[in-house]
Computed example of a mutant assay.
Amino acid sequence: MSVRGIRGAITVQANDRQQIWDASVKLMNAVVEVNGIEPEEICSVMITVTQDLDAAFPAKAIRELSGWDYVPLMCSVEIPVKGSLERCIRFLVHVNTDLKQSDMRHVYLGGAEALRPDLAAGR
């Protein structure tokens, strides 16, 4: 068994607590579903937000999901590169699996599809 990384990103329309929480749950549910994983298999999740999103912690929304009580979640602020995608939430999910890294399915939703169009199309 190895630890593999799964990337995900999603954008929101506004710096609004409910939008941030809803988008975080939507993205996490998509990552889990397309990869066929359970919270118990997840080592940890690193979450970043762009500096224009400070109305809520995305981890708080994920923590409310069933089975996520003991999964380590950490929020941070993305590097503020000029011209980068705004209002974006990014995930790096570390999962225990027997699959190869090339078998991991990354999820890019909404405006975040522009970050990795090669992966957003589902390969």
Rank of each mutant, 00 (worst) to 15 (best):
W68N: 10
S102H: 11
R90V: 13
L53P: 02
E33L: 10
L27Q: 08
R87Y: 07
K100T: 07
L65P: 01
A30H: 09
R116K: 15
E86H: 08
E38N: 08
S24Q: 05
K60S: 08
K82V: 10
I79N: 08
I42M: 12
V12K: 09
R123W: 13
S44T: 10
G83F: 02
I10V: 01
L109E: 15
A56S: 06
R4V: 09
A120S: 15
P58G: 07
V93Q: 05
P58L: 05
G5Y: 10
A56C: 02
Q51I: 01
Q18P: 01
V25K: 14
P39W: 00
I20T: 09
L65M: 14
D98E: 15
N96C: 12
S44Q: 12
S66I: 10
D118S: 06
A23C: 08
V45P: 07
G36K: 03
S84H: 12
S2N: 13
A114V: 12
M46K: 11
V71L: 05
A61L: 00
D54P: 01
A23M: 11
A30L: 08
D103Q: 05
L119P: 02
D52C: 05
G110A: 03
K26Y: 03
E33S: 09
L85Y: 02
Q13G: 15
Q18L: 14
M28P: 00
R123H: 14
V32Q: 14
L27D: 12
M104Y: 04
V32E: 15
T97K: 00
A23K: 11
E33T: 06
C88L: 08
R63P: 01
M46R: 10
A112E: 07
I6P: 02
V12R: 09
I6G: 07
